[in-house]
């Protein structure tokens, strides 16, 4: 029977590094994906995920299982991501408008070099890629806190209680955040939503 997150963390506290390896294996992918969708840069997302795990490791001596492990883990991740997004925003403001336009990192990460080889139907592939890009951009346009709420709710499937603790708001405020986020997404993705309804 698999040990719970809390039990693994208590074992890490007792000096068992193998338990830390299990936690790393269990949460590296969800964390990296969450952070990637928050900061929109793969390298930065991995750096932040490393920082999350290191902070967990450093805090092992003082760990007390007072809340769910995922709440603690994603609270660290969310705070790091929000700080990073704010820092990036200030950096972008300093970049000259004359700077050459480059393709965004995510396109580079997910595109394959030889599209025709893997996708015999290139037209279909391009349509799918355009859809995904539109969805990604709609998520990216959300204010940071709404984005974090949607990502934690939709992709991490955390319950309202956990998410409200992570975002340090009431459950009622969280429900309003999610409602406003879905309202924005509904408008941004209107053409796709219409297709979906047919």
């Amino acid at each position: 029977m698999a040990r719970s997150d809390v039990q693994l963390m208590l074992d890490v506290k007792a000096g068992d590094e193998q338990s830390f390896a299990l936690l790393l294996h269990r949460y590296r992918s969800p964390l990296i994906n969450f952070l990637y969708r928050m900061v929109r840069n793969r390298e930065q997302a991995e750096d932040l995920a490393q920082e999350v795990f290191i902070r967990v490791y450093r805090a092992r001596e003082d760990y007390v299982p007072s809340a769910k492990f995922t709440t603690w883990l994603f609270r660290i991740a969310t705070n790091l991501a929000l700080n990073s997004v704010r820092d990036n925003r200030y950096q972008r403001m300093e970049i000259s408008l004359d700077a050459p336009v480059t393709t965004d990192a995510e396109d580079g990460d997910e595109k394959t070099m030889d599209v025709a080889e893997k996708h015999p139907n290139i037209e279909q592939h391009l349509i799918e890629e355009a859809r995904r890009k539109m969805i990604r951009q709609a998520i990216e346009k959300l204010p940071e806190k709404q984005r974090a709420a949607v990502l934690l709710h939709k992709y991490q499937e955390l319950d309202y209680g956990e998410i409200s603790k992570i975002l340090e708001c009431s459950e009622s405020a969280l429900k309003s955040l999610l409602f406003r986020a879905y309202e924005t997404l509904r408008v941004e993705l209107a053409p796709l939503v219409a297709q979906q309804g047919k």
């Binding site: 991995e46 995920a49 859809r131 969805i135």
Partner: peptide
Amino acid sequence: EFRAVDVLLDEVPMIEPSAAFDVRV
């Protein structure tokens, strides 16, 4: 419409951690 948005969000692909991630941690 919210249900349609929910389905659309499923289309965003996941990424895999790089091979060096564990090593760096």
